[in-house]
Design a protein around this nucleic acid. Sequence first.
DNA 1: TCAAAAGTGTTGAACATACACCCATGT
DNA 2: ACATGGGTGTATGTTCAACACTTTTGA
Lengths: 231, 231
Amino acid sequence: MATSLPVAAVAVDLVILTLRGEDLCTLVVRRGIPPFEGRWALPGGFVLPDEDLVEAATRELGEETGLSARRIHLEQLATYGTPDRDPRGRVVSVAYLALAPDLPVPVAGSDASGATWLPVGPSHEPLAFDHERILHDGVERARSKLEYTSLGTAFCAPEFTIAELRRVYEVVWGVSLDPRNFHRKVTTTAGFVAPTGAKTARDGGRPAQLFRTGEAVTLSPPLLRPGHHRA
Amino acid sequence: MATSLPVAAVAVDLVILTLRGEDLCTLVVRRGIPPFEGRWALPGGFVLPDEDLVEAATRELGEETGLSARRIHLEQLATYGTPDRDPRGRVVSVAYLALAPDLPVPVAGSDASGATWLPVGPSHEPLAFDHERILHDGVERARSKLEYTSLGTAFCAPEFTIAELRRVYEVVWGVSLDPRNFHRKVTTTAGFVAPTGAKTARDGGRPAQLFRTGEAVTLSPPLLRPGHHRA
DNA sequence: TCAAAAGTGTTGAACATACACCCATGT
DNA sequence: ACATGGGTGTATGTTCAACACTTTTGA
């Protein structure tokens, strides 16, 4: 290719969402070098010369969480390429969205002096670059996908109870759902969840059946109708 | 930025969808130069050094259709960056999806020896590069968005009748909808369409009210419940 | 007067929310 | 026994697909 063609550095950035306690959290790393030194940023890095985009995202995900991408839902979110978004030069960043079950405290990446789970909310300290916007888009995508797909199971451990799955929706949407109707809804929707046969009493009370993620399912009508649930 | 950072050319490609007769069509240009010389390809081009991505897409849209991006819905679709997707070198392409009303026959772009509206179907000659996949993703996105947003109006002229809007859904989804229930649904959904007060009899029979696009609306439940309609 | 398309009214079925009620376990 | 959460049954209200019917034009 001629050098006259316009070029840019291509990066991937990750919005990795998980549930911790009562909060929806995203993984952030402390920047150890300028620009934005000392600020939190989404994990990410440059795409290698012979690497596919999703490969680069998978690699970064593994480096940051220490886990293989198996079991972790990963999808392309959007691409951000405003000319001045990175003071070092033209960087086009392809953002990926990952949904993960509650993971151990992350290990620090090589170019970051620390990593943590940041609760997503109206008031966290602003992220570096345009990562605030990327995070916002990622959370919106997750909320929206939970509404009309069976993706909520991506936030759960390999085996989970219906109550644990329900908590996912309650935290992500900030609503309170009726346990009985929720149970009926997800267990009667073909392909949403698959019973393992096992039971657990880890949540107290009567032991609950354990389920695995079913096939990916599109819901019509959606699981939740906005405005029909208690905040 | 140091030259040691990985670089790629960044392009935008456009999936421009419109309705012509009974077909959903996409704009394609005949490639005048290698690679893939003589094959149909999606319109697109490289992003200029100081240009935002959406700016580049808007510019290409204007060059190809001769129309300003006003009135034409444009949204980012996805980004394609497999290392070998372009034989000339590493090209990362950000695809945009445009939905347009029936436009005049397009003008040929500067680097293309012809342009036409290609009916989207199971059997058209395959497009250049990975554009077949991009087109597929674009059509899927359009189908999906019609289901749970009021975006169908983007396929209509500035003023349209409910019957014309209904035809959009029937063609895009390949179904047959009840005119009376469809009418009720879109006219009673707040913000979907806004009456202009005018009437037209251009479709024959009793004159129909004319409407304009309303605010963008998210539908819950969706406009169509799969499996509830005739093919 | 007839054909064609717009638009309204109505009804039976499907579905969702709310909640009464019973089940199975730990303490 | 009782507290805790799991899970089923059921009534009441809403929404929807189907279609009978009226309205308004052109031929």
